[in-house]
């Protein structure tokens, strides 16, 4: 177990290094940072001085080395636009994104598992077929357009819910959160629904497929033969066994939710780090782009590790570290 953890951490460091190299070469070398960092009015002497001060006259590997050394000290450069540390900017926006992604995931789980269970138990019924048709729609609908339609119906036509921002926030352990106030919830509902849609469809399909498969297994037949109630058969024997793939997908999809929050945050003007990324690309705010990418890659690596550990905890048949052939 310990050996596995150490090996995984080493692998993660390698992936992170490779990613940092790609991002660095991509963002700093393909484009010309001098044009952006130095005012076009500067004369030749000022330019040379600025290039020297920024270290742009150094060879490429040296620049990368300096970038890496600063990154290890938690310094990913300063934002051109906001004139604060890029990393701090990301961490300020991160709670909003994580809150949105968590609420969206909860929506998907709370609605998706019962609906999928129902569709799996009654696959031929009209309600089961309707649920499945709805899930196909959930895969096909473009997220950003659904967001616009939600705003159109619930904000403009009905006027029930606000269309942008986070609403009133309260501080929880020093982090501003929306989900503890009524106004915050009113602001959360639409973006979270929008973000949840794809995962809701995924949950429905997974649960349905798992249920149909589990119902044919011997342990379910045996439980029924023992005369257990339907509720107990489904709630304990079926549900517990289909939970393993569902938990895996929930974990893996959480990373995808954070990435797709970029779109939802832009539609609903939700002040998270996804919207920050889009704004930064528009303003060519390179340090923030680099910081965002390194943060999100780290996040993905951590999530994947947690999912693997959870998987082995849930399913005793999985032995970590021995799967390598």
């Amino acid at each position: 177990m310990l050996v596995y953890l150490i090996r995984r951490c080493l692998q993660s460091v390698v992936v992170l290094l490779v990613m940092s190299l790609i991002v660095f070469v991509g963002v700093y070398a393909v484009g010309n940072p001098i044009d952006i960092l130095i005012s076009p009015q500067a004369d030749q002497a000022e330019r040379e001085q600025a290039i020297h001060a920024l270290g742009l006259d150094q060879p490429m590997w040296m620049q990368y080395f300096v970038f890496l050394r600063d990154a290890l000290h938690g310094d990913l450069g300063h934002s051109f636009v906001h004139s604060t540390s890029a990393l701090r900017l990301i961490f300020e926006r991160m709670p909003a994104t994580l809150e949105l992604a968590t609420v969206a995931m909860l929506f998907a789980i709370i609605l998706g598992i019962p609906l999928g269970l129902w569709a799996g138990l009654k696959p031929e019924s009209a309600s089961g077929r309707t649920i499945m048709a709805g899930s196909i729609l959930g895969f096909s609908l473009p997220t950003f357009w659904v967001g616009l339609m939600l705003i159109m119906v619930f904000s403009v036509m009905l006027g029930w819910l606000p269309s942008n921002g986070r609403g009133e926030t309260v501080s929880l352990f020093g982090i501003p959160v929306s989900f503890l106030t009524l106004d915050g919830w009113r602001h959360l509902v639409l973006p979270a629904t929008n973000l949840a849609l794809f995962n809701l469809a995924l949950m429905i399909r997974l649960t349905r497929a798992g249920t149909r498969e589990a119902l044919l297994q011997d342990y379910v037949k045996f439980a029924r033969a023992k005369g257990l109630s339907n509720v107990r058969v489904i709630g304990v024997h079926v549900l517990r066994n289909i939970l393993i793939p569902i938990v895996t997908v929930i974990g893996l999809q959480f990373g995808a939710l954070i990435a797709f929050a970029i779109v939802t945050e832009s539609v609903f003007a939700w002040p998270g780090m996804g919207k920050l990324l889009v704004d930064s690309i528009n303003f060519l705010d390179r340090p923030v782009i680099v910081a965002y990418l390194l943060v999100i890659v780290t996040l993905f690596i951590v999530i994947n590790l947690i999912v693997d550990l959870l998987y082995s905890a849930l399913d005793p048949r999985v032995r970590l570290g021995e799967s390598r052939s």
């Binding site: 991509g26 995808a256 970029i262 690309i281 999100i296 993905f300």
Partner: peptide, 9 residues
């Protein structure tokens, strides 16, 4: 990595 992230990078 999700496709949208790679495309944005």
């Amino acid at each position: 990595f999700p496709s949208i992230l790679i495309a944005l990078i």
